[in-house]
């Protein structure tokens, strides 16, 4: 296994480079090489099975291509991208996707953080709570979307409960005003557990000594949270936010089942449009161009959010 091949390689490098330079520099160089060797198996694998398909997609975005046609893609330059500029549906899909991410992300992260803090204590039955809150993440998106489809229906659970408070029936998924919010609510529910678990793991990575030292200095609970928990949680918070941006901006399966992009295009996300373009209209060139514009935006917003979370780099 590749795992076992790393240490001998690492030590031999150390031996080879170990003679001449002074200690700090030698160690620096040795760590460089070892770092690369640690990364190498993963990098090679990702390069082959993730990066190559992405590059292939990038190439396709400059072509006219359908797998149904014999012969390869026809190069069309920037035509697909130019087409997107004048496509009102794509513009609308970008707005819908942006709204979706901006609705789901802050609410999920905030609630997940509170929950993570609540279940990060050793009390009887904590495992049950963690599991209960994590359950939505386990069940396949398709199955839970179908349950929510029914909950939102005219005589479904949501209306039944609201009727108890005197509200009239609403057609949550059929009204352009409420459809995206209804889908967002489901996605918040679905994403809560995974975010909580990640933040929980982040909390666990904060050394206990820091809290002990803080208490010795007489810090209160808020001060401990503000000056130890939050900074310590920052790397995981960055991960959670970036991961949520990437996953949420590719929202598709829940939309497919709940609304099929409607009503009046109010829930047509970019990925829904991409899927339709590629697999319904067999136009892979245009679908790829859509994907790479989305890609640029995802990367842009991820970098922005990382910047704002991390503040100045150390």
């Amino acid at each position: 296994m590749s795992v076992n091949s790393v240490p001998p390689a690492a030590t031999s490098t150390v031996a080879a480079g170990g003679a001449r330079p002074p200690l700090p520099r030698r160690r620096w160089k040795r760590q460089h090489v070892v770092g690369m060797l640690f990364v190498l198996p993963a990098a090679l694998y990702v390069l082959t099975f993730q990066f190559v398909p992405v590059i292939y997609g990038l190439v396709l975005s400059f072509t006219d291509y359908t797998p149904l046609r014999r012969g390869g893609p026809d190069f069309v330059g920037l035509e697909n991208y130019a087409g997107l500029l004048t496509d009102p549906e794509y513009g609308n899909a970008l707005l819908v996707t942006g709204r979706y991410v901006l609705t789901v992300l802050p609410i999920t992260v905030a609630i997940a953080l509170i929950l993570a803090l609540l279940v990060n204590r050793p009390f009887r039955g904590v495992g049950i709570f963690r599991s209960a809150l994590y359950l939505p993440h386990i069940v396949s998106l398709t199955s839970v979307s179908l349950v929510w489809l029914w909950m939102y229906s005219q005589n479904g659970l949501v209306n039944e409960v609201l009727n108890l408070f005197g509200a009239t029936d609403q057609l949550w998924l059929l009204d352009p005003e409420s459809a995206l919010n209804a889908a967002s609510a489901m996605r918040i529910w679905k994403a809560l557990g995974s975010n909580m678990v990640l933040l929980l793991a982040g909390l666990q990575s904060i050394p206990n000594e820091l809290y002990e030292a803080g208490r010795v200095d007489g810090a209160g609970r808020w001060a401990l949270f503000r000056y130890i928990t939050l900074p310590g949680l920052r790397p995981m918070l960055v991960y959670v936010v970036v991961m949520d941006i990437i996953y949420l901006s590719q929202g598709f399966a829940e939309i497919f089942i709940l609304t099929r992009g409607g009503p009046l295009g109010s829930t047509t996300t970019v990925n829904y449009l991409i899927y339709t373009e590629a697999f319904q209209y067999n136009d892979f060139g245009s679908a790829s161009a859509m994907a790479f514009v989305l890609f640029a935006l995802i990367i842009g917003f991820s970098v922005l959010s990382v910047r704002s979370l991390v503040g100045r780099q150390k």
Partner: peptide, 10 residues
């Protein structure tokens, strides 16, 4: 069906 056929023809 369309997804599988596209992959299959490709």
């Amino acid at each position: 069906l369309s997804t599988k056929l596209n992959a299959g023809f490709a």
